[in-house]
Design a protein around this nucleic acid. Sequence first.
DNA 1: GCCAGATGCTTGACGCTTCAACAAATAGGG
DNA 2: CCCTATTTGTTGAAGCGTCAAGCATCTGGC
Lengths: 160, 160
Amino acid sequence: MDVPRGLDPRWLDDDQQHAWRQLAAVMLKLPSELDHQLQHDAGLSHFEYWVMALLSEADGHRLRLSDLAAQANASLSRLSHVVTRLERRGWVRRTPSPDDARTTLAVLTDTGLGQVTAAAPGHVETVQQLVFDPLDREDVDHLARVCGAIADRLDRHRDG
Amino acid sequence: MDVPRGLDPRWLDDDQQHAWRQLAAVMLKLPSELDHQLQHDAGLSHFEYWVMALLSEADGHRLRLSDLAAQANASLSRLSHVVTRLERRGWVRRTPSPDDARTTLAVLTDTGLGQVTAAAPGHVETVQQLVFDPLDREDVDHLARVCGAIADRLDRHRDG
DNA sequence: GCCAGATGCTTGACGCTTCAACAAATAGGG
DNA sequence: CCCTATTTGTTGAAGCGTCAAGCATCTGGC
């Protein structure tokens, strides 16, 4: 990771150390809680829910797998596996794209739409309780700003 | 998830929606980048690094498995598996506790200490680049405050 | 037009996490 | 004391993500 030889690494100072631990705690625990609630109440992983929610918002309830992967922040491989599983349960089906024979569209079925719709209220309530209840309105702005900056940096890190 | 019947769920407003998407993006992508760097440069997952780093800071380079699990925000089962793998590589060993015959101590070996020490500069540099470089000093405060509030909420959610 | 490289997606093996079941030791109430 | 409930930890199976390899299709320069 390009540590200049002969120079001290840029260690984290106390503030950074503290902030990093809090962020790491959220990264570790929050996904597990969300998975737990959704699994228990709707038989879905958080990622499966996210994918189906994205499809439910899309025109014609369908998206190219690549686009879906990008919006879900996932690898194409991961998405392909998940779509296969959702397909087995009848909530999503694959359709060849009319424009480009390479690309596949994932389409949310009516049953699938019903599934997300039913799961949504419980999931949103959990997000409210775990993420937003402990925050005031200013905090929400800060959260968006800070995470937005990091997320941008992460995007550029991939190709840049 | 206790959605009051007959009442509308507390849907996310636009600001919350936006903040939630940014946070989700960070939760999805940052761990993967950290794992990638550590795996490539040191043959460690981020979680393995985290565990060994915690041990390296502890008195006598040792901690009860329960305490280690709590500090690492992990289940006991997950930790037990990881310790087994680290033990196989000679970086950690298990020792029975002198006080309580139920508890096991994980001890970082000298080789293990060398391993974390060698991995640290590269890892810290990555954290600086991906997390703190896009933030100014105020942002770091906000990050700590916001994630601290969420992390507290998550802790209370488990037992409370 | 043709062909090399790029793009889009799938697949199977491997490794890690979770979950449930279990075992051993301790603490606490009667 | 004893018996039960709790704490601490391990294990194996099942499920999911990553990785590398592979195939089909498209694009762009010649």
